[in-house]
Amino acid sequence: MRRCAGCGCWEYGGAPGCDRCAALVDRIVEDGWRVFLRDRFGVAGLPAEEESAIAEMVADEPDRHDWRVVDGALDRLPAPAAGPRWAGGHGAARRATSPTASATRRSRPTARTSHPATSTRSGSASR
């Protein structure tokens, strides 16, 4: 990995605050979606209405697809009352127009968040 010239973090790690890192993350999702379309449908791009229909199918069965495909599908679906995108990727947080939706997406737990099984109650680990 290299350091990002935009923010100084490791590449990808500065998203969503760093536009360059966020663009790198968005590219991973977009590339995953395009590969899925090419592998399943023989083309890397389809008319918008066909892509929307495929995106709905993917969103209905997310456990059957790679996370990049799911995020790519969610990027193509309208998100009622939650901003312009469903996906929780870094680009979604950066571009969200709803202050509530944006704050919610940015407040997702990070790797440093303690797991419930390792949290402590009254000084002893819970089991």
Score class of each variant (00 low, 15 high):
residue 96 A to S: 12
residue 59 A to E: 09
residue 39 D to G: 04
residue 60 D to S: 15
residue 50 E to N: 07
residue 3 R to T: 14
residue 49 E to Y: 08
residue 46 L to Q: 01
residue 24 L to D: 06
residue 123 G to Q: 08
residue 46 L to K: 04
residue 73 A to F: 04
residue 92 A to R: 00
residue 19 D to M: 10
residue 55 A to W: 03
residue 78 P to G: 06
residue 3 R to N: 14
residue 76 R to F: 10
residue 100 T to W: 11
residue 101 A to D: 00
residue 107 S to W: 03
residue 38 R to I: 05
residue 105 R to K: 13
residue 120 T to D: 08
residue 72 G to I: 03
residue 80 P to W: 13
residue 76 R to L: 08
residue 94 R to W: 01
residue 28 I to C: 12
residue 52 S to E: 14
residue 40 R to G: 05
residue 101 A to E: 01
residue 67 W to K: 07
residue 119 S to A: 15
residue 80 P to Y: 14
residue 35 V to S: 04
residue 45 G to Q: 06
residue 55 A to I: 09
residue 113 T to M: 05
residue 19 D to E: 15
residue 61 E to H: 15
residue 25 V to K: 01
residue 101 A to F: 05
residue 45 G to N: 03
residue 81 A to T: 15
residue 57 M to D: 12
residue 26 D to P: 00
residue 90 H to D: 06
residue 91 G to Q: 06
residue 60 D to T: 13
residue 112 R to T: 06
residue 33 W to V: 07
residue 42 G to E: 02
residue 13 G to I: 04
residue 34 R to H: 09
residue 71 D to Q: 12
residue 1 M to N: 12
residue 45 G to F: 03
residue 108 R to M: 04
residue 109 P to Y: 02
residue 46 L to W: 01
residue 99 P to N: 06
residue 45 G to E: 09
residue 119 S to L: 15
residue 119 S to N: 11
residue 25 V to C: 11
residue 114 S to L: 10
residue 63 D to N: 10
residue 63 D to E: 15
residue 96 A to T: 10
residue 57 M to G: 13
residue 33 W to H: 05
residue 25 V to W: 00
residue 118 T to W: 14
residue 110 T to P: 00
residue 37 L to C: 10
residue 97 T to H: 10
residue 12 Y to M: 05
residue 59 A to Y: 02
residue 100 T to S: 12
residue 57 M to E: 14
residue 23 A to R: 08
residue 9 C to F: 07
residue 59 A to K: 02
residue 21 C to E: 02
residue 52 S to W: 10
residue 22 A to M: 10
residue 15 A to H: 03
residue 31 D to M: 09
residue 35 V to I: 15
residue 88 G to R: 10
residue 45 G to V: 02
residue 61 E to R: 13
residue 23 A to K: 09
residue 117 A to M: 11
residue 90 H to T: 03
residue 121 R to W: 12
residue 32 G to Y: 04
residue 41 F to G: 05
residue 28 I to V: 13
residue 70 V to W: 02
residue 44 A to Q: 05
residue 67 W to P: 12
residue 82 A to Y: 14
residue 120 T to A: 06
residue 121 R to N: 13
residue 83 G to Y: 07
residue 21 C to F: 06
